[in-house]
Design a protein around this nucleic acid. Structure first.
Lengths: 130, 130
DNA sequence: ATACAACTTCAAGCCAACTTGAAGTCAACA
DNA sequence: TGTTGACTTCAAGTTGGCTTGAAGTTGTAT
């Protein structure tokens, strides 16, 4: 069992954030020593998952739904499958964006609007918004 | 030159959002007809870029810096190169996350903490936060 | 000429995800 | 025993990205 400053140190999350996450049920402390929260070390794994989910653009509420509010992950298979598919989409998009950026950097066309490569990129971008 | 409702229709963005984007200098109108804004059709391309950037998790201010506040994209090569690299990172991460999710769905280990595959995923996740 | 729908501005409100600040509590050490 | 310093709670504030609402202004259709 570690205290909040230790958890903060290990995770890189400020204590305020950890309290906030606990408040909204993303993590939990497993007791107190006086007033002070004590956490199980496993919480660091949860935090890593959370940060991963966030970098994927998931809102905290969704992350909570995916990894479970309680101690043990409550894994809803259908939800997970859906997320994985969503990630596939997102990865595709980001790849297009990245390639687009790299292309723009070296493209010689007068205006990007005239560049077939750029137009293709835009087509993909617009498709998504449908 | 098209009006705001037409631009809204074409882009799928509500008019309020378009006015907001104009206010913060992400897009611009090229005149008025009475009070009503008129936009060049090219703005749709800008909007596509914006939406692409957003789905990549870039804040609007950064998107503005990348695509330029003024009519023509002001492309800072160094900034673009950096973004492309950042996207590479993000794509890698999302791939790990996606594979992780798909794995969890089928993993038979008692706790994911015991699963070597899962632990590897967490290692990658934690590496990023460094 | 007048009514109407579609625009306009501007201020305020809203949600997520936090941070900050004030005031209190506690254990550990001198 | 008392003072320090790291914790605590709770309320309020902040930022980003918008939306909503009230009140005013138009071009067009009748």
């Amino acid at each position: 069992m570690i205290d909040i400053s230790e958890l903060s140190r290990r995770s890189g999350f400020p204590a305020s954030k950890l309290r906030y996450y606990e408040e909204i049920g993303l993590i939990r402390s497993s007791g107190r020593k006086g007033l002070k929260r004590l956490y199980e070390e496993e919480v660091t794994v949860r935090l890593a998952l959370i940060s991963l989910g966030q970098s994927a653009g998931f809102p905290l509420a969704e992350i909570r739904a995916l990894i479970g509010a309680e101690g043990r992950p409550a894994l809803d298979r259908a939800a997970l499958a859906q997320k994985a598919d969503a990630l596939d989409d997102q990865i595709k998009q980001l790849t297009v964006l990245r390639d687009g950026i790299r292309h723009i950097m070296t493209c010689s066309a007068e205006s990007h609007l005239d560049c077939p490569r750029f137009r293709r990129i835009m087509r993909v971008a617009l498709k998504r918004r449908t």
